[in-house]
Every structure is written in structure tokens, then in C-alpha cells.
Amino acid sequence: MRYLKLIKVFIKTSAQETLMYRANFWVSLLHAFLNLIVAVLALVILFGQTENLNGWNLSSTLSLLGVYLIVSAIRNLFIGPSLEALVGLGQEVWNGQFDFTLLRPVNTQFLITFRIWRLFSLIDLFLGGAVLLYSIFQTPQSPNLLAWLLFLLALVAGILILYAILLAFTALVFWNPGYLFTWVFDAIFQLARYPLGIYPVGVRIFLTWIIPVGVITTIPAQVISGQTGAPIVFLILAASVFLFLFASWLFNKGIKQYHSASS
């Protein structure tokens, strides 16, 4: 309850910080639409040349795009900005402001996960949802309630995996503030715009087992278009919980390292 209240305060404060720069609203709106147009245009150009991309047609690829936009919007809403405040040159771990975070009588992992919100990402979230719904209404038979439920589970698992990867990479900063794995991850995450199946075998293995970016978007999109079912969903749900636990463990280990490191 206390933590929910804290989240509320963080959201409120972030909103306030955002409102300090009012022009940003229009800029973000512009960016959101631009991103959407670019992404859709890319697919239209592609499917103008071919009808079928390794079993994916325009509408199922659009669903995937919708999932991708939703997942990235949630990442940009709070996970990304909160974690990014730690990583990189001149950021908290580097300049020692992280000390203040550690002195707070609140769970540190909670604090670094939820404290900064970029509310403009709600626009992207909305647009992503719209793309997803549009693509689903394009297909002849719409998914039933069970499919929607499985889809939601798969989406949650995907977001949890994304969070776990980002948290684990963030934790590495405690060993060396020069590590920029979260940035590398951001680059790799762009590969999740397209179905896992289009990539060469090596890349596919990498995106499934090493840095499971492909799983995050491809499986929810497959679930909603009926290409895959419950067993896979529960499998990635289990995997996501495991990854979450591992990342939390690594993060706490990182804090220990910070406590014993030279100032």
C-alpha cells in the first residue's frame, strides 16, 4: 500500500517535471505519430513487394508491430527512464548521487525501477494498442476470450523479460560505470520489430536463447493470431519469472559490490 502510494507520488512529480517544458507535449506527440507512420510505411513498402514473409502476412506483421509499440511504450514509460538514470557517464552511479538513493529507507530495487516516469509514452501506448486492434479486426476470425487471456499473459511475460534484461545490464554498472550494455540492448531490441522467423539461424538462436528479445514480441503476436498456444505461453511465463529472480539477485550483488568498492 505504501509502495503504491509512493508510485503515485513519483508519477505526480514526473508529470510536474514534464509540465515544466510544455512544448515537449507537442514534440512528443509529433514523435509518436512519426514513429508510427515510419513503422507502418516500412511494412507497406515491404508488403508492396511481397505477400508473404516466411509465413507472416501484412496483418500479422502489423499485430507484431502493435505488440512491439506497446512493449516499448511500457519500457519508455518508467522502466527505461528509471534505470537509465543510473547508467552511463555523468549518471548516478558515476557521479556518486546513487548514495542518496541508498540512504532512503525504501527497497532500493523498487526505488530505481519506479521513480522516473515519462508520461508522454502513454501516447505510444495508445497508438500501439490501436495498431494491434486494427490488425486484429483485419483478420477474418477474431480471437476468443481464451486467446485474449493467453495474449495478456504472454505480454506480461514479455515485459517481465524485458525488465529483467535491463535490470541485469544495469547491475553490471556497479562493476564498471563505463559498461553500456543497456545501450547495446536498446540497439538489439529493434530487431524485435520483425518476426523472429525472418532472421538467419544464428541470429534467431541469439535472439531466443542469449538475449531473448525475439521472444518478447513474437510470442504474444503469435498467440493473438492463433499461431501458438498455451504451452508456449506458460513456458515463457516460467522463463520470465526465472529471469526476473536472476536479475534481482544480480542487482543486489551489484549493490554489495558498490558498498565495498573504492569511492
Partner: peptide
């Protein structure tokens, strides 16, 4: 540099798959 390489590489994979 790695980040800037990715969008063209994605396009490469997409078009060669297509």
C-alpha cells in the same frame, strides 16, 4: 556505432528473407 548499424541490418535481413 553499433546502434546506428542496426536499422540497416534489420532491413537487410527483412529484404533478404523476402
Amino acid at each position: 556505432a553499433f546502434g546506428w548499424m542496426i536499422p540497416p541490418l534489420v532491413a537487410l535481413f527483412v529484404w533478404s528473407a523476402a
